[in-house]
């Protein structure tokens, strides 16, 4: 059944990050969602990890034998939704 869980499967579709790349990030020392995000950009795309975070957490837990709360959750920084540079530049700031 391993063929169905192959390492070339995409996990983060926004940044096209595969299972293999996430496992490699973990081998390089990533211990949580933020560590994976910094190394391979999973969760850094358009949806900001809304879709893939749970899968990244599952892979981390599986690879490290960790509990779900130990692998953490993504941090959030503004802007938390995609916005054009134009809109941002024209923003009202006082």
């Amino acid at each position: 059944m391993a063929e169905y869980f192959s390492d070339d499967m995409i996990v983060c579709r926004c940044e096209e990050v595969t299972v293999a790349e996430i496992k490699e990030a973990i081998r390089q020392g990533a211990k949580d969602v933020v560590g994976v995000k910094r190394r391979v950009r999973a969760g850094m795309g358009l949806c900001q990890g809304r879709t893939c975070e749970k899968m990244v957490q599952q892979i981390l837990a599986q690879e490290l034998g960790a509990k779900p709360w130990e692998v953490g959750t993504s941090s959030a920084r503004p802007p938390i939704r995609p916005i054009s540079f134009g809109d941002l530049a024209n923003g009202v700031v006082e």
Partner: peptide, 16 residues
């Protein structure tokens, strides 16, 4: 709070 506000005609405007 920064809000991207939807205005008429599908335009957006950033409001603080």
């Amino acid at each position: 709070i920064a809000i991207e506000k939807g205005i008429d005609g599908g335009e957006k405007e950033v409001i603080t």
